[in-house]
Design a protein around this nucleic acid. Structure first.
Lengths: 207, 207
DNA sequence: TGTACATCAGTGAACGCGCGTTCACTGATGTAC
DNA sequence: TGTACATCAGTGAACGCGCGTTCACTGATGTAC
């Protein structure tokens, strides 16, 4: 990889490099197909900077990867919200689209998905509380979407939105992660499988 | 780790070391909590042998890990079959126990579970066909268990056992793998969560 | 307007480390004659 | 029964490699006076 030409940031604009590093890392993870294979050196080559400059912005490599996680979580939340918004005022359809968008995003960015949900757990940088963990927002949105289905009478009134949201999350994660991890299994056609799983989830919660 | 004293195998018993290496690897994966952290040197220390002796039995490290996979798959199949056998002649209960045994085994051996289902796919050693892949047998047993539920009239007659088995697998995998990967999430009580998910699966397929 | 100086955004070279793997070798064990 | 020899189950030392990180340094840029 030939180093990109990069002009040094002007005074006060040092933070620009931080964003460029996160960008490059997110992209390299997909390109190299393995977050472990993404080295500090490769990231710096891609940005056009020398390895030590990473440490101007991140205490260590883990914190750079954590920044990537935060960004990917926020993208994932975005695509789910946008998908849900296309469902008109049908909460069940919105929930279904939310789930399908989750799976689609995971399959389109398998290595970043792996970083979020399949990697070894590594502690967050600070004593970050649960509420501010990246990913919490997306889960809250899911929980609200389930509650909307209960409120409109489509789901049984005894459905606990929290428990159901957890169950749905594990459901969509299951198919996404196995498709990523075991691509050689003789899977049924993907869209049919995902539709089937989402339908099962809805069926199990419906009145 | 101080090298275990180990007597050299007698003539014709060289294969013994192979088994000892697989044993030690499976165990070290759980002990160190990370399959990537298990080095050839650590394995050989545990067995009481020098690193080059691995290459008497395995072409490279990947093939040693593949042998561990095959063993763990077979254990997993065992515990599911035994769990199913405790259900008397109720196929639905047998299926439920099969699923719960799967989750339980995964949570009891998280790092070996990770090796089977959450690691980067790495090609099998030979041109192993699908039928002889480790893990295929366990899936066939699951599929048969689903079919039994259809045959006894508990599941809808239009349920496709293959598609349903895939869906169930992704379901139990979802909860198992997320509990392993994201232990810090505010999970509901484990048994209740697993029971809920299994119940949902059954509910979605029942008449 | 000129200039000394502090600050900022980086760099070049090297550090120690652990890894998978290879090479030439050893010493005990069984076997042929 | 003795002995030369082939085979087997390993070993000791080293290989090259890439990694995350650190250290002392640089050169452009803005600022105070």
């Amino acid at each position: 990889m030939t180093p990109a030409a990069r002009a040094r940031a002007r005074r006060g604009e040092g933070e620009r490099l931080r964003e460029e590093l996160v960008d490059a890392t997110e992209q390299l993870i997909e390109e190299l197909g393995d977050a472990d294979a993404v080295s500090i050196r490769a990231i710096c080559d891609a940005v056009g900077v020398s390895p030590p400059s990473v440490y101007l912005h991140f205490a260590d490599k883990d914190q750079l990867l954590f920044a990537v996680c935060a960004r990917v979580f926020s993208r994932l939340d975005d695509v789910m919200n946008r998908a849900a918004a296309t469902a008109g005022d049908d909460p069940v359809e919105a929930l279904r689209r939310r789930g399908q968008a989750y799976v689609r995003y995971g399959l389109e960015h398998p290595e970043n998905y792996r970083l979020l949900f399949m990697a070894k757990p590594s502690g967050p940088p600070e004593h970050l509380d649960q509420v501010h963990m990246p990913g919490s927002v997306a889960f809250v949105h899911l929980q609200e979407a389930v509650q909307a289905c209960v409120d409109c009478g489509a789901f049984r009134p005894d459905v606990d939105a929290y428990m159901a949201a957890v169950a749905i999350w594990t459901g969509v994660h299951g198919v996404t992660s196995l498709l990523i991890s075991i691509p050689d299994f003789p899977w049924p056609e993907r869209d049919a499988l995902v539709a089937n799983i989402c339908a099962n989830q809805v069926r199990a919660l419906s009145v």
